[in-house]
Design a protein around this nucleic acid. Structure first.
Lengths: 219, 219
DNA sequence: AGTTTTTTGTACCATTTCGCATTAAATTCC
DNA sequence: GGAATTTAATGCGAAATGGTACAAAAAACT
């Protein structure tokens, strides 16, 4: 939703939006939105507590269609998680790349994070990674690898932020960008957990503000 | 295991260890250890993915006995969680009460936390609160209340630590104990999540060290 | 010994779960 | 119009799940 809007100037319209005239009966669902619904369910209830019937009802697809489109339950879970990470990354990457003062960048990142964790009709939905890490990462190596990847990716992004800020003189010389990055990630994690326990947004914002203060003044 | 060893000098032996001669058939299990086994299972697999058969096998109790002793699955889950919190609190309360320099207290707390999160035969077991918060806290009000209680309890304990340190002059005047306490909790949370993803102890210790450095020097 | 009380152990039930087999529907190509 | 192809819809089935009924077992009390 962020960069893909830029279409190649040549061959303007015959690209993705127009169906390429598939051969058989047309599907009654859109894979993208169906995956979004599945994602919401998995995020709310976790892997084990989400049944195929639930998924079928939420997506509007019956079970055989689910299988045909996404594979079995575990594959659907993994695809949902990938989708979640793609969305989250897309929402944050511009801020991480932007050339703004440290404090402003942090504040914008955390605002996005809060938006992600607190949105949803039936209560806050929290963070898929925390859910996943908590539930499946121990036993499932593939999921664990994704979780690890997500964790280090966030650490790295924050790390670049702080290193950049230090080079610009926004941080004292003694500041350690790596440690600050871990603290910034930790703040993401604590917010995700607290959001799950329905801590109201105001309190979460206060926690964020305090953390940002410490991280920006850090010697 | 910490304070209860001190027995009242009078009526020395006729207390708890000797059974009070119950009337019927004696039980074949010890509730304490059975609850410990159940706790381990729930902690590893979560509520939904842990079946009564699993619990029965792990505790050595058959299902009717489980019901008789602990109630249904949800009650057993809640009792397990209570037990977990009691254990964790017991392991930390002395350190929180102790009169030591800030840095030393923090290091000791995090060492205990790592011991808790990394122990276990089949991989690290992580933190029950993070598991629980992630899985059940949204839908179950009772569990959510327990999670919230645990979160604020930790915040408060750290808060007392930092306020104490500030009064002693271990922190600069500008330091905000509440914010630092939240950062200290956040460090606990990030460690719990990473331990779940099998990040090795050495890396977790490095993260802790960096966080402690920042928190102790915080202006 | 016999009664009472408490726990164990087996077996069962209704429901849910995942996955798939099979048939019906809707579309394109010839 | 008819064949081919892709999807939808129904429903089956084997296994697992949470929970319980019921009888046998093991202890204390009388």
């Amino acid at each position: 939703m962020v960069q893909k809007t830029k279409k190649p100037p040549s061959a303007a319209k015959i690209e993705a939006p127009v169906a390429p005239k598939r051969r058989g009966r047309p599907r009654a669902y859109e894979p993208e939105v169906a995956l979004g619904k599945a994602l919401d369910l998995f995020r709310r209830d976790g892997f084990a507590a989400t049944s195929l019937d639930d998924l079928s009802a939420a997506t509007g697809m019956n079970r055989p269609s689910l299988y045909g489109a996404f594979g079995d339950k575990r594959e659907l879970y993994i695809k949902s998680y990938q989708r979640y990470r793609d969305d989250a990354r897309a929402a944050m990457v511009d801020i991480f790349r932007a050339d703004a003062p440290l404090r402003e960048r942090l504040e914008r990142i955390y605002r996005i994070a809060l938006d992600i964790y607190l949105s949803g009709e039936s209560g806050p939905r929290g963070c898929f990674t925390v859910m996943t890490a908590a539930s499946e990462a121990v036993s499932d190596p593939d999921i664990r690898a994704m979780v690890l990847e997500g964790l280090t990716e966030l650490d790295k992004a924050f790390g670049i932020c702080f290193r950049h800020a230090k080079e610009r003189g926004e941080l004292p010389d003694g500041a350690d960008p790596a440690s600050l990055a871990h603290l910034a990630s930790a703040t993401i994690h604590t917010i995700a957990i607290r959001a799950r326990a329905r801590v109201p947004r105001g309190e979460l914002e206060a926690i964020v503000k305090g953390a940002v203060d410490v991280m920006c003044r850090a010697k």
